[in-house]
Amino acid sequence: MTLKIIQKGFASAVQDIGRTGYQRYGIIVGGVMDPPAAKIANWLVDNHESAAVIEYSFAGPSIFFTEDTLFAVTGAECIPMLNGREIGMGRPCLARGGHILTIGRMLSGSRGYLAVAGGVATPVWYGSRSTDLRAGCGGYEGRLLAEHDCLPTGIPSPYAQGIMSVLAQVESPISWYAALRRSYRGMHWIRVMPDTLWPHFSEESRKAFLSTNYQITASSDRMGYRLSGEHLLLEEAGELYSEAVTNGSIQVPGNGQPIILMTDHQSIGGYPRIAQVASADLSLLAQLSPGAKLRFRMITTQEGEAAAIQQYHTLKRLHQEIKCRFRLLAQKNN
């Protein structure tokens, strides 16, 4: 089975939950920017959550299905159309061979996900199918998707095949949907934890960091978000050596304007870091666009951990709910 790219959308690429275990060699983790949204897309087609999906930013691709395919669209809000018919997001959909899916522009949020039953089956590189653009490896030929690319897909699970035969018999699409309760509009509170150098930033800087807005600028990408706002200054600039950095590390280069490292960050960095974004808020951050305003709120690492664990359980419940809906759907068939 293949997916043929008719229109590439913007920055569309094959991604999964990332390439862990190789940062010590300088190979980045990468993967989807919004893991919860990508996992939901996979669950909706009965894939393992780590299956490869297509991620797009701001505008989605148009895709030609060579065969009957079960798929789901999640993440940033859009109006996906299958052969000119609105199909809705966050639910399993059946495309017949020859159908064309048009995802179009995002109405709210930045990153969207298309999962197909069986997953995108491009070659695995060091344990992952994620596209590493800078290394030119992984994903589809190590690059962004382009018109005429043909992506191989894997074999749908037996359960997904059952869902496909149910959907083939019903006229109306599925009415329920799975989504994360998030809003991408307005000002966003982002929880942060202090990094080692926090006490070494000037008192005014620390105060400004926690009490004024920072705006995401246009020079932001999957590697990092450059922010603009009050200048941040270290009390005294000592010599720093490069060391490991991660998603959500907030670096402050010489110009005093913070940069939040995102999914495609390098494994190490040498700029002073003021704080670290709570893991639970990274997927919200991933959906924000240039122009969005942030306000940072300081929490403890214990609170950060509790928020991450709570997010895990919320997603787990959503997964159970999807499985439950699938069972009901299968019963309908019998």
């Binding site: 862990t20 490991a244 190490i268």
Partner: peptide, 30 residues
């Protein structure tokens, strides 16, 4: 999950859900 060594220090990444599942419930993973 993995470690990343540098000049003066090394960072260890872990999955807090796994740490607690296989360790003590009443203490933080960290």
């Amino acid at each position: 999950i993995e470690y990343v060594p540098a000049y003066t220090n090394v960072v260890f990444y872990y999955n807090p859900v796994e740490v607690i599942k296989r360790g003590k419930k009443e203490r933080t993973a960290q």
